[in-house]
């Protein structure tokens, strides 16, 4: 489990809105975070590895190493954060389950749960990143 702070910045919201197709999004100092914005907390996660880092080779994980892939995502909104807030994100392992794959093997699904709380400690958003990989990779 790890925690870090996620400042909700108006310019970042504008940049994110444009990136997901709202090409003419303008700067709004009081903007509400768009539906999937919480994933951008990764920019503030010191341990995030999908970025250039001085302590690791690039790219960090090659597909053949069996890291699996991002299969799905769930956001639960207790309320929608707005620009100017600073949230605390806590990342923890979630549930794990197995399904039969279409080609006969087993698939392992694993959740990574990030909980965002506001300055008063009240919940804002819970995000569940669902990763999947083939069982033969799990057993390596």
């Amino acid at each position: 489990m790890r925690s870090f702070q996620f400042p909700i910045e108006a310019g970042h919201i504008q940049e994110f809105k444009r990136a997901v197709g709202d090409l003419d999004a303008t700067f709004d100092p009081d903007a509400a975070a768009p539906p999937t914005f919480m994933v951008a907390a990764d920019r503030y996660d010191p341990d995030y590895d999908r970025r250039l880092r001085s302590d690791r080779p690039w790219p960090p994980v090659a597909p053949e190493s069996g890291s699996g892939f991002h299969a799905g995502m769930v956001f639960e909104y207790h309320r929608h954060p707005r620009a100017g807030e600073v949230l605390t994100a806590t990342v923890a392992d979630g549930e794990e389950w197995y399904k039969q794959g279409r080609r006969g093997g087993q698939l392992r699904f694993r959740e990574i749960v990030t909980t965002f709380v506001d300055a008063d400690g009240q919940p804002c958003v819970t995000a569940r990143w669902i990763n999947v990989r083939a069982d033969n990779e799990v057993r390596e």
Partner: peptide, 21 residues
């Protein structure tokens, strides 16, 4: 995120309780 544009159209900026994909 792109799909979320349709959700904002019908739910507004702060109407969503849950979004799963």
């Amino acid at each position: 995120g792109i799909t979320g544009q349709a959700l904002v159209t019908v739910f507004g900026d702060e109407g969503l309780d849950r979004y799963a994909a």
